[in-house]
Design a protein around this nucleic acid. Structure first.
Lengths: 340, 340
DNA sequence: GATGTAAATCTAAACGTTTACATTTTTTGA
DNA sequence: TCAAAAAATGTAAACGTTTAGATTTACATC
């Protein structure tokens, strides 16, 4: 069946005009019952499938959403993407996905191609929060929703996680357990999540009158390796921290590996909370306490916002969601035994 | 800049016909240097981006690859997808991704939409290996590459992992450590991976003259929960196994959670090997030994095969790759201390 | 300067839909 | 039974490209 029937073939077989066929396949009504039946059976007989390309051509919309993530291998994103994909499909949209490896250059190329392909909207976690390299999208009037990372230089709908609040909760919890020497493994300070999670840490310390000790603030890059090294660094300190707060999932993993290597006893010698839930959290011993982000919801809301913007003609104001992460207390932080 | 310039606008501005502009944007040569320059600057001035939709319409190809996976949240797939996506982009193709939640019904819908959208090829890990629900693709002459799971009822290029070999290696390793009571947590026997991994297990036992004990063969469904329950079941056995082989990553995770719950000491009281590497493997204590699949490579080869089939006019024979997994010995299987 | 040839450029027809508008058919109500 | 109104159907243009084939231009040769 190499032959691909077109709407014209259907029309011919059903002895009607292509306009009528079009009306039937689009459920527009205004077609006599008998005619419709004739058309439907012609469609079935020929195995006709309408060409979305031709349709897009005329309609000037592709029902395609472009997704840009910095690293699909980071377990956070598949969950977000899954939320997006599911919700989008419900609404009749499909997604084209690209991962930039955190490169703004790649990101710019992808944006170009997305425009070429006529995506109706884009959901992006950008590799460069200024957003200059994405300006093109904005100029074309293509709706954008920024997810997890904000875009600074122009206005777009945004779905963020309240990072400050999340890390505040985590650090506060550690403080209430009696810890004073609390270390943080930071993400890059030029990214919103990296910076904000540090701010939450700082604020918690301030609120409880604990001076910030620079030695306990280690810069990482959100990658596993840096979590690993940071932990080693902390271990080597004269005044070792009694608790560690890690700013993301990958660094948490690196940190765990280091703890095992160093035989630094989790929960006993050092308490721990990580930002982001990780697979391992619940079967490592002791189970890891974490700040968990609502990944699926994040994706779903992004689709909702984008959907509205794609389908409402008038101007919508910029909308911004700030989702609260949830502190999941498990077993990795104990009362500090070291007397003050 | 709400106005979207077309090739015609460019032509007008450069004072040439649209045919010449087309030749320039497609690098087809045969255009005088001066003319080309005039066209290029017209393109830049207008910010012209050619419409891939119109192009696809004429060319009858979209340079789009459809990817269908059963569950994007299973950490195995993001790695495969990442391999696909990267390689595809190199070759000028983009990917549209859908996750079926292991539902053949959803899968069929997706296939339909992929056809509607005119994908040039499909890479699929199917939810139903008979492949009947995908027949439509095949009928349309759209190239398919099956990845990780075979398709039975018609011929397609296939990239598989040598499951039999992988589980054989794992079980053999356990046997050589002196284990005789080796349990397996199986995947569904109606899936290729599920069945083959069981076959490898069986074969290893046979080769070493160890009788197969039905009580030690637990059926799971490749989901975390079943790994958890299976482990409980094994623990409750009168004759507890001294080693467990888990057939996939998610069940491994379930199993680990159960071990913690039951306080069944990994490595000491029970040795363990899992199919598929998991994030946790290296910082759980003892570190997990696993059979690891080359996920990235899997995706890359799939793209290569698909690419050839999409761009070669003649008939290619069915090709089948069988990638060997790698046994990564870490610490979770110890010499069996229980004397024989 | 005329001629022939090669190179550059143009014209116009597709590709498969949707849709405004025109036309035909059916229904309604006197 | 007929005209008017409503419903169904048809006609044809458009969407933005690519491309075969026609036409023009440039260049070399004599």
């Amino acid at each position: 069946m190499e032959f691909k029937p077109t709407i014209e073939d259907v029309a011919k077989l059903a002895k009607v005009s292509i306009a009528t066929v079009s009306r039937v396949i689009n459920n527009q009504g205004g077609v006599r019952k008998a005619t419709e039946e004739r058309i439907v059976s012609a469609i079935n007989e020929l195995g006709y499938i309408r060409s979305a390309v031709a349709r897009s051509m005329k309609r000037k919309e592709t029902h395609t959403i472009g997704i840009i993530v910095p690293d699909i291998k980071n377990p956070f994103f598949p969950f977000v993407v899954s939320g997006i994909e599911q919700k989008a499909r419900e609404k009749g949209y499909y997604t084209i996905l690209s991962s930039t490896n955190e490169s703004p250059i790649v990101e710019e190329e992808i944006v170009k191609i997305f425009i070429e392909r006529g995506v109706d909207g884009v959901i992006i976690t950008t590799a460069n929060e200024t957003g200059d390299h994405i300006k093109l999208l904005h100029d074309q009037g293509i709706p954008i929703v920024a997810i997890d990372r904000a875009i600074k230089n122009f206005e777009v709908d945004t779905v963020l996680v309240d990072n400050v609040n999340g890390s505040y909760q985590a650090v506060q919890h550690l403080i209430l357990q009696g810890h004073k020497k609390i270390a943080i493994i930071c993400g890059p300070q030029n990214t919103t999540p990296g910076h904000e999670r540090f701010l939450g840490y700082k604020k918690a310390l301030e609120d409880y009158n604990i001076p910030l000790d620079d030695k306990l603030v280690i810069q990482g890059d959100f990658m596993e390796g840096s979590g690993f090294h940071a932990t080693h660094e902390l271990f080597d300190l004269e005044a070792r921290p009694t608790a560690i707060f890690s700013s993301n999932n990958l660094m948490t993993i690196g940190c765990m590996k280091a703890l095992v290597d160093l035989d630094w006893k989790l929960g006993e010698e050092v308490s721990f909370i990580g930002f982001d839930d990780v697979e391992i959290a619940t079967f490592i011993k002791p189970k890891l306490s974490v700040v968990s982000r609502p990944m699926n919801t994040l994706g779903e809301i992004a689709v909702q916002l984008l959907y509205e913007r794609m389908n409402v003609k008038g101007n919508l104001p910029k909308r911004q969601y700030l989702l609260s992460p949830e502190l999941k207390i498990r077993e990795s932080c104990q009362l500090n035994k070291i007397k003050i």
